[in-house]
């Protein structure tokens, strides 16, 4: 299963980005192979529609879960229709590494 995590930087020590649509990087983590892929977010500076555009990006990678600090008003209905689960982590000091550790324990 693939999981998308929003990140502030392009390494595993970076903290979780608290916004979904305008985060700096998406980390695509594969729980089976343990591989991670960092994708710079092209919608970071978008005036509007960053959320739906970012959904297209992560959905095209085939993720089943998205971990972020906050999701905008438009995205939940789209994620629900794509059957992608949302996880909101309120702790902004959480690193990407720590989240990967937590989800890979399952």
């Amino acid at each position: 299963m693939k999981i998308a995590i929003t990140s502030t930087g392009n390494n595993l020590q970076a903290t979780l980005d608290s916004r979904f649509g305008r985060c700096s990087y998406f980390v695509i983590y594969d729980t089976e192979s343990g591989s991670t892929e960092f994708i710079p977010n092209p919608n970071k500076e978008a005036m509007e529609g960053a959320g739906p555009a970012s959904i297209q990006l992560v959905a095209s990678k085939g993720v089943e879960k998205v971990v972020s600090g906050e999701f905008g008003a438009k995205v939940k209905a789209i994620f629900d229709s794509l059957k992608i689960q949302l996880v909101i982590v309120n702790d902004s000091t959480m690193t990407v590494n720590r989240i990967i550790e937590m989800v890979s324990k399952q």
Binding site: K76, A77, D80, S81, Q85, L86, V87, I88, V89, N90, D91, M102
Partner: peptide
Amino acid sequence: FTSDWYFCKDCGCWFN
């Protein structure tokens, strides 16, 4: 489409 939100008391995260 819509879904319900849940709260985890252990790690303090929200999820649907």
